[in-house]
């Protein structure tokens, strides 16, 4: 039976975003611009399309963040996030 690739947890953003920020992105808290839900990026729902990872809001499914690993550098679109908050103590990264 063929089925749609199932989504993963925001945790899997750590690889594509490794080295992009000094903090581990999966423990950064973000606010959805669309519905205002506040959650750690690790709790978002990620569709790991081979063209780029698409992280969606766990509450309203709006696109929060898109990570594309271009050959000339990783590119991150964050238009769906109102803000990000770093944890006081950042995790391993």
């Amino acid at each position: 039976m063929e089925h749609a690739p199932a989504p993963l947890d925001g945790n899997c953003l750590a690889g594509p975003l490794a080295g992009f920020f000094t903090a581990d992105v999966t423990v950064v808290t973000g606010c959805c611009r669309h519905c205002g839900d506040v959650a750690m990026m690790g709790a978002s729902v990620v569709y790991r399309h081979p063209m780029g990872a698409v992280a969606r809001c766990r509450a309203c499914t709006a696109v929060l963040l898109v990570v594309v690993e271009h050959p000339d550098g990783t590119r991150v679109g964050m238009a769906g996030l109102a803000w990000w908050r770093l944890p006081v103590e950042s995790g391993p990264g």
Binding site: E2, H3, A4, P5, P7, Y47, H49, P50, M51, V54, R56, T61, V63
Partner: peptide, 8 residues
Amino acid sequence: PVLSTGPT
């Protein structure tokens, strides 16, 4: 291959 960026 079935690729998706969101729920079907």
